[in-house]
């Protein structure tokens, strides 16, 4: 699992990132640095207002940091680009395009020809189990289906890093569970480096190989926790995962950290 020793540049490196507002009097992020390892899933966890969303949006290039820089495989990046694919919490599949055309959209921007585009779109629609809905518009789809269209569209661009901002936050519990299992399946198959924001501690442990916990005001990394009780495996079945020794300890630790954060601001 550990590829850091090979000496190649990591898929993403955030170097001393700060985001200040109001001329520096409010710091959403304060000197945050981290590196992603290839084919790892990292979860950003933390209380509301801890800067994890800001951090993700800075990585995506949708916002700019006040200080610091970003590198993708050693190359500095400024602004958004298809090397960093993003899945939003809000449904972003384009309502005026069919599922098929939605998946083709990103590839079209990349200049991929019609024939190859169609073929690859079909493949990715199949991957997210939407091949029967290729000709449907998002309007006639459920939230989970719209989110799968967005996922297929992003994966079809073959991004180096996949960013997810609470992608299942708007879904109901059962669909959310199905989407989480689908995510594990897809990431195992597509070999992606992933960063996912979540409020949900259980979801973080289920999806992530590593959890970065943010504290708030100013936003800093409070803890960088490897999810090593999984022994480098990903479990698609939650019922297997929760029985592993170490699961309860990690969950307990994260809940305790979350409580600490909440109480700190209560007394502050």
């Amino acid at each position: 699992m550990d590829t850091a020793a090979t000496g190649t540049a990591p898929p993403l490196r955030a170097i001393r990132i700060s985001k200040e507002y109001l001329g520096g009097s409010f710091k959403a992020l304060d000197d945050v640095s981290f590196e992603l390892r290839e084919n790892q899933i990292t979860a950003f966890v933390g209380p509301s207002g801890c800067g994890k969303t800001t951090m993700l949006r800075i990585v995506a290039g949708l916002e700019y940091p006040t200080r610091g820089r970003l590198e993708v495989f050693g190359k500095p990046v400024v602004g958004p680009g298809p090397d960093r694919g993003m899945i939003f919490q809000a449904y972003t599949s384009f309502p005026w395009l069919t599922a098929q055309k939605n998946v083709e959209y990103g590839m079209k921007l990349m200049g991929i020809g019609t024939g190859e585009r169609r073929e690859r779109a079909n493949g990715f629609l199949k991957l997210v189990h939407l091949e029967k809905f290729a000709g449907s518009y998002p309007r006639s789809m459920s939230g989970g289906m719209k989110q799968r269209v967005a996922l297929a569209r992003t994966l079809a661009q073959n991004p180096k890093v996949l960013l997810m901002d609470e992608p299942f936050g708007a879904l109901d519990a059962q669909v959310r569970w199905e989407m989480q299992e689908l995510m594990i399946e897809l990431i195992e198959r597509e070999k992606k480096t992933v960063v996912a924001i979540t409020h949900d501690i259980e979801e973080a442990i289920y999806l992530a190989d590593r959890i970065i916990f943010f504290s708030r005001q100013p936003g800093r990394i409070k803890a960088d926790i490897p999810v090593d009780f999984k022994n480098g495996r990903r479990y698609q079945r939650k019922e297997e995962l929760v029985r592993l020794p170490g699961y309860a300890d990690l969950e307990h630790r994260l809940f305790a950290m979350m409580r600490e954060e909440i109480q700190e601001t209560k007394t502050a």
Binding site: G81, P82, G85, A90, T92
Partner: peptide, 13 residues
């Protein structure tokens, strides 16, 4: 929705 524009930008539009 601004997310539609942001999604397009992250895809390289």
């Amino acid at each position: 929705p601004k997310e539609l524009v942001e999604a397009a930008l992250t895809m390289g539009a």
